[in-house]
């Protein structure tokens, strides 16, 4: 269970959100510049909120006392908007980057499963600039999940893809979520995508959550 309640002063407004996520897909929707990515970054530890708290499965990431867990110890998966694949490493090395030197039988199995589900086994020896946008997206997903994270954060994961590939990838995301059973937090500005993917959709406007599609949220701060 992911518990988030944070405040952070951004350039033009204050981010002020609280929500709880179980093993479901939560979509953070809102126009660009609404603070969606800042929320993901705060959860990942890539930026620090001014106050509040973030916990995942009882582990404190941030407690508001400037005492935050470094990103590397949070065990989360993060899919960046442009995938951030390492350009100087093959697909295989990208995917194995977060694994410990000794791969156990389970990790081997997990990687196999990821490669099969995402259909990228044939790309292992290629470099990121040699594969298509849709393939990059799948590789990035495999890389983010290979470390067996407790939470997956996805920043506009499908925005760079064409219509057809996007639909395929949406289905893959849903399938992976079925298999993984961890909270997925997806940022998007596409209403359609939000409705298709989200078990719950949180709408963000100028740093505030304005409404919750399913209405099961904790109190929404409305100022």
């Amino acid at each position: 269970m992911l518990d988030v309640s944070i405040r952070k002063q951004l350039d033009h407004f204050e981010l002020d959100v609280s929500f709880t996520a179980y093993n479901e897909i939560i979509v953070l929707a809102g126009s660009s510049g609404a603070g969606k990515t800042s929320i993901l970054q705060a959860i990942a530890g890539l930026n620090e909120p001014d106050s509040g708290m973030i916990t995942l499965n009882g582990k404190s990431f941030f407690d508001g006392k400037r005492n935050s867990l470094p990103t590397r110890s949070r065990n989360i998966g993060y899919l960046f908007q442009d995938y951030a694949l390492f350009p100087h490493m093959t697909v295989e090395r990208n995917i194995h980057y977060g694994l410990h030197k000794q791969t156990t039988a389970t990790t081997g199995f997990i990687i196999e499963q990821l490669l099969t589900v995402l259909g990228i086994s044939h790309l292992l020896d290629k470099y990121p600039h040699q594969i298509s946008g849709g393939e990059k997206q799948r590789v990035a997903l495999a890389r983010a999940l290979a470390t067996e994270p407790d939470l997956l954060l996805l920043d506009e994961p499908l925005s760079a893809l064409d219509e057809e590939t996007r639909e395929e990838c949406q289905n893959e995301l849903l399938r992976l979520h079925e298999l993984w059973k961890i909270p997925f937090l997806i940022v998007t500005h596409s209403r359609l995508e939000a409705e298709k993917l989200g078990d719950r959709v949180l709408h963000l406007k100028k740093g505030l959550l304005v409404n919750d599609s399913r209405g099961t949220m904790k109190e929404t701060p409305v100022h």
């Binding site: 590397r72 949070r74 065990n75 989360i76 960046f80 951030a84 100087h88 980057y97 977060g98 890389r143």
Partner: peptide, 26 residues
């Protein structure tokens, strides 16, 4: 691109490993 280092950190890399495997070679 700062995101590359961030991506490595989310995968558990220490600052030294980020430097050694990402920053320096690139």
């Amino acid at each position: 691109d700062n995101k590359l280092g961030d991506a490595a950190r989310t995968m558990g890399a220490s600052e030294w490993r980020v430097f050694r495997t990402i920053t320096f070679p690139l």
